[in-house]
């Protein structure tokens, strides 16, 4: 984990923390699936037009992540190496089927709003990535914690995008009016192009923020050297 400390973000699916707690925390922020790894783009762009949808989608994905990570970790010593990806996909598809029926049972309006994107969690690279990179090599408890961390990080990332799109595009936040009745909504942000632009703005500001932090660290290091 030493690379993380100097503010360099590691890109890619294959980060592999040492224990469950570390995995949980790095999934939340350091390796946030939306902002740092830029994975699982389809739901990130498609259903983020309201914050309510984002939270529902994030929780559904988190459920699948925890289930599939736990199961994959349980069977990790039984599965031959050649067929492991196929086995993981079957485990994930089973978890997704469960969550598909669960969401339909809990709330029909949310199920209709998310549409095909609940069954499409099967094809979300975050889930398969975590199964292959972490759950297949770690004990059950750590794998479940990792799933929860990445899931919460994903929910957080979705909600950040959803908040901007809902406030600008509809003038509401979680259904409550923000600007009062005279607000003229900026409809573009509710439409598909708004999704692309919002994510682009978020990514650019994350990079800018990281660079500033890094520059400040470098300056501080130089200053302390001069003083010595």
């Amino acid at each position: 984990m030493s690379q993380h400390k100097d503010g360099e973000a590691q890109h890619g699916v294959a980060y592999n923390p040492n224990n469950g707690l570390e995995a949980f925390l790095s999934g939340l922020w350091e390796q946030n699936p939306v902002f740092v790894q830029v994975l699982g783009m389809c739901p990130t762009l498609a259903i983020t037009n309201t914050v309510r949808n984002c939270i529902a989608m994030g929780l559904a994905t988190m459920f699948v992540l925890v289930c599939s990570n736990t199961l994959v970790s349980m069977i990790r010593k039984l599965v031959p190496k050649q067929v492991r990806i196929a086995t993981y996909i079957l485990v994930i598809a089973t978890a997704v089927t469960v969550v598909d029926y669960l969401v339909k049972a809990i709330s029909v309006p949310i199920y209709q709003a998310l549409g095909p994107f609940i069954p499409l969690i099967v094809a979300n690279c975050i889930v398969l990535g975590r199964a292959e990179a972490f759950a297949a090599r770690n004990p059950v408890g750590a794998a479940a914690l990792d799933g929860a961390g990445v899931g919460i990080g994903f929910t957080f990332g979705l909600s950040c995008i959803g908040a901007i799109r809902e406030v600008l595009g509809a003038g509401t936040l979680l259904g409550f009016s923000v600007f009062g009745p005279n607000f003229q909504p900026w409809v573009l942000f509710q439409l598909p192009p708004g999704g692309f632009f919002t994510l682009a703005i978020w990514l650019a500001s994350m990079t800018a923020w990281k660079r500033r932090r890094q520059n400040r660290l470098v300056l501080a290091a130089q200053a302390s050297e001069v003083r010595v």
Partner: peptide, 21 residues
């Protein structure tokens, strides 16, 4: 410099998406 990589790709995608509207 800031807009290289994913940011530039997403912005172009947004513009293409506007055109397809």
């Amino acid at each position: 410099d800031l807009s290289r990589g994913a940011v530039a790709t997403l912005t172009i995608a947004g513009i293409l998406s506007l055109a397809f509207m």
